[in-house]
Design a protein around this nucleic acid. Structure first.
Lengths: 355, 355
DNA sequence: TTGAAAGCGCTAACAC
DNA sequence: GTGTTAGCGCTTTCAA
């Protein structure tokens, strides 16, 4: 493995010159640059990332910390990751994903304190999230996907759940639905402080109330069985329901199965809208689901861009906690994609503009 | 950020002593160790990973290279990742996932050449995979998940597709099915040299032939629509089919939908077995799918263990390509998990032991 | 426009 | 059982 010294010797220049053509930190004459480049090519030189990192105190590596305790990454998360990776790469950074489980807080602290990561994006943030605290203590530049309860000192990008729910409800109401049931994640998930579940719940109540309708919410376990149970509960609570809005990507298959099992057709008897769902999953169902499509890759891109802006920005007071530190806080709504699972309810026509 | 020097000064010992209590590379008296540990705690010392890596020429980081071009990680891949992460962690390594797209071969080469990764696990290997070549050229220790066509010089862990298909077919045949259609990935995927698709195809032909049955294979696009089309094609090719064996986790939802659409019940009229599927996905369907469950986390664990054994093993001739380099080559079968989607065909009873 | 040299924070001989 | 010290391969002053 050739080193910079080898390159310098072959090109008949000093090591610093080689370093400067690599970093572009100071002007180099074309002739010298060519010599150096030729030498590099000849030796198949690759800079040693460790040495570079040690000397420059920057690894040029960004970490994407994602919990993997659950049922895997959906297409949504995947889009997120690829968006982030692309943004990192075009900013000259590597992106590595670190599968941090919930338990290993120490592991997380170590990872962040070892100066191996220039910055970190944390996914699946809870309203009260110890990981955020740990990360803040270590001083690594940090951007969240999702939000903690108190966001005053943090940078984050998140889905605009309020807007998303409002649009979904408006779609159904526009079709003429009045009895709409919201199927959320499980009670346990809600209790654990999972932001999306909590925020969509509140947004649903607000949206329905705004339309003068009664908000009915059911919690469902993340499984097909949970979805079936939730649908049964929904009919118990609101026998005349004509539409289901589901936040739970897993339960929704159970909901559809149970609907079919009860001899009810989608969207003839009951309309179904899936929230924060990828097109891939929406297309899996029969009929394909009308869904609110998450802005996955944009979220990833924006998070990384915010992080990079911070890192590559003026080196001033990067470690001062003064109010001068710029935070990036942004919400992106999901987009309504109408497919085959929504239609006007059987018993009534779409409401008119003046109604 | 405290350095080793600070710790040494506070503990009144030399830096090397601090280093040795950290690495455990030579005996240290209990008294000294305690002093050092106390100093570390007091200063909240964290070793600098870059410096350590530069000096020791080992980053203690393992890379898991996974293509993310597609529809996301299923529960299978997730189990894989968590298995790998756990194994790495308990061997004292960090595991980072790198989302390498198909295109960036140069990016891959750079990543591997920069001495940032002590070893690499490559997922989703194709029969002819340029990435393997690139990686081998860089000289990083490498373990594959999946296999290239020529495995003579490589370490790998893979699913035993032969055995898995044989068991799946045996299950159906045991129930009395004779007309079994195999729904594979798309023709394009097959043409691209995707090992699992190719290997299961061959295994299916072998297994069916072994039972004296006619092997019918249909290629399906990876979508619900693809599944529906495949089922139509299957009925065209084999009108009297009573069972479907599906390799395509995405298409299977279309298959089920189309079956229902034709007024056919599962498993009453047609039995369905899903290959290389996670329990989570299998439970999504109604009825829950009988499936061959992939040994996800075991695969991940074994791959990492093989890599670590290589890295931590005798430092002898690690860069020699002599025949002394031990390769790890192992196949693991999927396990049959019977759920609600398989039953004896309507028209006949299970075959007896002597039949 | 270029070179010399002092580190970055650690590991691992080598010495005792 | 412990200390000294020469690097690891690079970046970045300082000096020309």
């Amino acid at each position: 493995m050739a080193t910079m010294h080898d390159v310098a010797r072959l090109a008949q220049v000093s090591v610093s010159t080689v370093s400067y053509v690599l970093t572009g930190t100071r002007p180099i004459s074309q002739a010298t640059r060519d010599k150096v480049l030729a030498a590099m090519a000849e030796l198949d030189y690759q800079p040693n990332a460790m040495a570079r990192g040690l000397a420059s105190r920057r690894s040029r590596i960004l970490g994407l910390l994602m919990p993997m305790d659950e049922r895997g990454l959906g297409a949504t998360e995947t889009a997120f990751v690829t968006g982030a990776a692309a943004a990192a790469s075009s900013a000259g950074y590597h992106l590595v994903l670190s599968p941090v489980g919930g338990g290993d807080l120490d592991d997380l602290r170590r990872l962040a304190s070892q100066r191996m990561l220039d910055g970190v994006v944390l996914m699946e943030v809870q309203l009260a999230d110890e990981r955020v605290t740990v990360l803040q203590e270590t001083g690594v530049p940090l951007v969240l996907i999702g939000r903690t309860a108190d966001t005053s000192t943090l940078s984050y990008v998140d889905i605009d759940f309020d807007q998303t729910v409002r649009e979904a409800v408006a779609h159904l109401v526009g079709l003429g639905h009045r009895r709409i049931v919201y199927v959320n994640h499980s009670a346990a998930t809600l209790a654990s402080g999972y932001g999306p579940a909590l925020r969509t719940r509140d947004a649903f109540v607000a949206a329905m109330t705004g339309h003068g309708l009664d908000p009915v919410m059911i919690a469902a376990e993340d499984s097909a069985a949970g979805g079936r149970a939730a649908l049964a509960a929904a009919f118990a609570r609101a026998p005349e329901l004509t539409a289901v809005l589901a936040m739970n990507e897993t339960a929704i298959f159970g909901i559809l199965g149970e609907l079919t099992g009860r001899g009810l057709s989608v969207p003839g008897d009951v309309s179904v809208v899936s929230m924060v769902t990828s097109p891939q999953v929406a297309e899996l169902a029969t009929p394909a689901l009308t869904a609110m499509t998450s802005p996955g890759s944009a979220l990833g891109r924006i998070a990384i861009e915010a992080l990079v802006r911070h890192l590559d920005g003026p080196a001033v007071e990067r470690h001062l906690d003064g109010p001068a530190v710029e935070r990036h806080q942004q919400l992106l709504p999901c987009a309504l994609e109408v497919r085959g699972s929504t239609a006007p309810p059987r018993s009534r026509r779409p409401v008119g503009a003046d109604q």
